[in-house]
Amino acid sequence: MAITVPRPKLSWRERLYLPAIVAGLAITFKHFTNMLLGRTKVTMQYPEQKWDANLPDHYRGAPALVRDADGRVRCVACQLCEFICPPRAIKIIPGEIPSTDRFAKVEKYPEEFDIDMIRCIFCGMCEEVCPEQAIFLRKDYAITGFTRADMVHDKEKLLEIGGVMHGVVLKWNEKK
């Protein structure tokens, strides 16, 4: 149902509009002069000034793979993150760990692990779903590249961003 909004009755002074126009001009001029005199607080000048130091611990930047203290990739190629990823940015090709290997009981490792950063929406679901604590959202947010191929982070790149994560993960504990 349409609602008719009654228009306010204006007095003749208001109908002249001139006082309002002059008042408006005065306001904008005040802003102009304040800016000229440097009294206005302006926004951060991004490439020169950055907010990096103040990023919170739970900041969700670019996802990255981490290694454990032994230098081993923590990911076991379970493909849960690939499954959960809303924009389907993650592509994993799992490989089998040979039985002679020290970590043979892990069975699988990611032969390839690509995250398409054009698609990634930084939602952090991969981090949440990962049972091995292998993928983390780091504090990098300026992901750039000249081509589409540049924007696909492969395993090396992800590991490079991720670095080493210390801490105990029960899975590789031989005593288990």
Partner: peptide
């Protein structure tokens, strides 16, 4: 316009 809108 930027100065009037408190931009640079």
């Amino acid at each position: 316009s930027a100065f009037i809108q408190d931009r640079l």
